[in-house]
Each structure stands twice: as C-alpha cells, then as structure tokens.
C-alpha cells in the first residue's frame, strides 16, 4: 500500500489530484500546529469551523452530515426565493402604482465559519458566524427578555459596557434596517427595534444599538451599529450571533469603509480541525490573486459573479453558456455545497464518474448523489475541477474542495444541482 501511495503521489498532474484520505476526513482534535500558525496580518482574525474541535461546542449538539446538508439546502432555497423576489421587484420598479409586499425575511440559514471579536468596553469576546450573504451583525444580549439559545461564551450584557447606547427610532441608522434585514424596524420607548428572520425559521429580534467593536488589539471600530438580540431562536449552534459581510450600508464592510477601504479577504482551512483567517484591508492581499468582476446591479446583499465554463480532468465540459447566464451566479461564505444549474451538474457529475470508475461507489447522502467507498484506500486520485469566471479568470479548485467526506466509506462529490434551471 505504501508503494502504491508513493506511486500515486508522484503522479500529481493538472488533470488529477492525489489526496491522502486522512487529510479530508473530519478531525476530532483541534490541530495545534494550525492554531499556532501565524495570521497573515495584524488585522487578521482567526477563522474556525462552527462544528469543528477548535470551537468549544458540546458534542451532543453536533449535527450529523445529513442534518448539516439539510440546513444547507434550506439556505439555498431561501437565497433563491430572495433573488426571485428581487428580480420581480426590479421588473416593476418603473411602475409607481405597483405595490409589492415587503421582503418576507432575509431567509438565510447560519453559515459555518466563525471569528472571535470583542464587543463593548471593556470588551467581551464573542464567536460570530461570518456571512457574506447577509448584512446585519447581531449578538444575543442580556437580559434575553424573551429567549436566548445556549451559547459557548457568556452572553453580552450591554449594561456592563460603558460605550453602549441604544439607537433612537427614526434615525438614519434605524431606517437603514429595512434594507439590511428586509423588515421595517419597530420602536419601543424610542429605541429602534430590529428583526431578522431566516429561511429555516431561525430569527433574532432585539434592540438596535452601537458600541465599540474590537477586531484585533490594533483594530478597533468605535460606534459600531449592531443588533442586541432579546429573542433569538434557531440553528445558530453555540455561536454568539452573526457578522454580516454583504454590501448594505449597515454591513461591517461599509461601516469600516474608511479604515479598510471596503476590502476584506478570508482563507478557509482544508479541514474543520484547522484554522483559517479573515482579514480586513488591502495591504495583505497576495499579488498572485486573480480577479473576476462583481455585478452590482442586482441588489445590495449578494455578491454576483459570472461563471462561463467548467473543466473536469483538464477537459472542458460541453455546457451551453446560457445554462450559466439564465439565473446568474453568486459566491456565498455560508453555503456549504456549490449548487449548479441542472444541466451543468449532470455534465460535471458524468465526467467525474467516468474518471472514477476504478473506485467502488458508496451510499448517497442527502443532496450528494455521487459518493465513493474509500475505506480500503489511504490515498486516492481524483480528477481536477476548474471554473472559468467572468474576465476569463480560470480557478483550479483545491483537492479538499472537490470532495465532502462524511466517513471513509462515504466520500462524495461536493456539488449538487438546483431543482430548476431558472433557480
């Protein structure tokens, strides 16, 4: 087996990845070498997986792979419904007499990667999900007037922060909540009240306030607007809330635009037991980065990009460009599995399966229908997958981004189809 592994590892090419199975299976211990890994800049925050061993979570609260993928599906459905709504609204935008209902909630299930930030004076450390698919930053707040779920760190208490203040009703920041959350703000004894609801029925409601946000010891944001949640329920794991990295004026990207010039970057680790980073500002962006343009005409929340073509094992898939352009494309840090238009998925899956015939197939799981039983292998050879984005920017997906490992006997192609070509 060792000799076969050496032979496989020596045969790495642009058409195949050779992967050690142990490198993609979920780890049970936080990787101490990655913990000590130097962050790329003083403005970088450590990123950990929500259900990985680097975040203190009760084992009993860890979801199964099927549950995780079901949650992912609910996020995808809600993204599609939001974009459909936005498209319908744009269609009628020029007709004054047409009145559409307000967006029925932001509809975004919780993402999977966390950063720890400090809130208040003195600061309290809070682990927040970071999400490029939503705008509002919120955390659970004492006294939890209605309901708080169990979180790993102590719940933020605004009465113990000298810099906290509530935002008054009718102020520009309060009025901005309508576009940031999809819901009109409420008012309680002149304090602005926010409400954000997600597609899986998770929600947070509370007072809209501002306080000092400490990203790193050298990066402090005074008067940062955020939601102080008094009624919080849903699939947020044991995190303290969420940090919104989309494009609305209330997102952290826009609130810190003077400090960081509306630029941020992240790197997600290959395993959930390792750490990555989230960095604000341009200074530490690698010169080797290849760019594709955003389309900013479709609302302020999602980051729309263009996908032009896909390659499997170095061979271009025969997919009509209209397959990708019909409904468009977004990038999202909170969706786990990439969703493709049905025709693109079928072409990708068939090409992948064709090059994987030497491995026994395994049982499908949830939305993943192309799984392999690698229990008898230490190392496997899988075809490369590349995507051409707008501007002819070709990106080779890392080996760890092609497979989703539930167990050694159930390692699946980490792509899934949308239910409809127009999704």
């Amino acid at each position: 087996a060792a000799a076969a592994d050496r032979k496989l590892l020596a045969s790495e090419s642009h058409e195949f990845h050779t992967i050690k199975l142990s490198s993609i299976l979920p780890g049970s211990v936080c990787d101490s070498s990655s913990q000590g890994h130097k962050l790329p800049s003083p403005s970088s925050l450590k990123v950990v997986h929500k259900h990985g061993p680097c975040h203190k979570t009760k084992e009993s609260s860890l979801p199964s792979a099927s549950e995780l993928l079901a949650t992912d599906e609910s996020r995808v459905k809600s993204i599609n419904s939001r974009i459909s709504f936005s498209a319908a609204r744009n269609t009628f935008a020029s007709t004054d007499s047409v009145r559409l209902p307000a967006k029925s909630g932001s509809s975004l299930g919780a993402g999977n990667y966390l950063v720890q930030v400090g809130l208040g004076t003195p600061k309290k450390d809070l682990s927040l999900i970071f999400d490029t698919g939503s705008d509002l930053t919120w955390t659970q707040c004492e006294p939890c007037a209605r309901s708080c779920y169990d979180q790993a760190e102590p719940i933020f208490d605004p009465s113990k922060s000298s810099a906290y203040s509530n935002v008054s009703c009718g102020t520009p920041a309060c009025n901005q909540l309508k576009s940031a959350t999809g819901n009109s703000p409420g008012c309680n004894t002149n304090t602005c009240v926010y409400g954000i609801q997600y597609g899986d029925q998770s929600f947070s409601v509370g007072f809209f306030g501002k306080d000092t946000l400490t990203l790193t010891p050298t990066d402090v944001v005074p008067n940062f607007f955020f939601g102080c949640g008094q009624n919080n329920q849903g699939l947020f794991g044991q995190t303290a809330g969420l940090i919104g990295l989309a494009r609305d004026p209330l997102s952290i990207v826009q609130q810190t635009s003077k400090q960081y010039g509306q630029v941020f970057s992240y790197c997600l680790p290959s395993r959930s037991s390792e750490t990555g980073s989230l960095t604000f500002g341009q200074s530490y962006v690698s010169k080797a980065v290849k760019y594709t343009p955003f389309s900013s005409s479709q609302g302020t929340t999602f980051y729309f990009i263009d996908v032009l073509a896909m390659f499997v094992g170095g061979q271009k898939l025969q997919i009509s460009p209209t397959v990708f352009s019909t409904a468009g494309s977004i990038i999202d840090s909170g969706t786990v599995i990439t969703r493709l238009p049905p025709a693109a998925y079928t072409a990708l899956r068939d090409a992948f399966r064709k090059q994987m015939t030497s491995y026994p197939m395994g049982k499908p799981v949830s939305i993943l229908d192309t799984c392999y039983d690698f229990s008898k292998y230490n190392t496997v050879k899988i075809p490369t997958i590349s995507i051409i984005f707008g501007g002819n920017t070709k990106i080779d997906i890392d080996g760890s981004g092609i497979l989703y490992a539930v167990s050694s006997s159930q390692v699946c192609l980490a792509f899934a189809p949308n239910s409809d070509a127009s999704d």
């Binding site: 890994h37 995808v76 993204i79 599609n80 974009i83 990667y113 490029t132 990295l245 990207v253 635009s257 509306q262 630029v263 941020f264 970057s265 992240y266 790197c267 997600l268 680790p269 290959s270 341009q282 962006v285 690698s286 080797a288 980065v289 290849k290 760019y291 594709t292 955003f294 900013s296 980051y303 990009i305 990708f324 409904a327 468009g328 494309s329 977004i330 990038i331 999202d332 840090s333 969706t335 786990v336 599995i337 990439t338 969703r339 493709l340 693109a344 995507i387 984005f389 920017t393 990106i395 080779d396 997906i397 890392d398 760890s400 981004g401 092609i402 989703y404 980490a414 792509f415 949308n418």
Partner: peptide
Amino acid sequence: VLIYGNVQQKTMQVVYDVAGNKLGFGAKGC
C-alpha cells in the same frame, strides 16, 4: 442561481474588493 459554496473556496485566499467591484482568488492562501 448558481451558488459557489464554501467547500469549493477552501485553501484559497478569497478577496472581496467591494469598492473595486471585483472578487479575487489566490491559490494556497492558507
């Protein structure tokens, strides 16, 4: 829509240049 999810973003430096209206990918970012 096609949604480019986080599994496929692993190990890349993903750069959101919102002011410049562009998204960047850098191989082996972590």
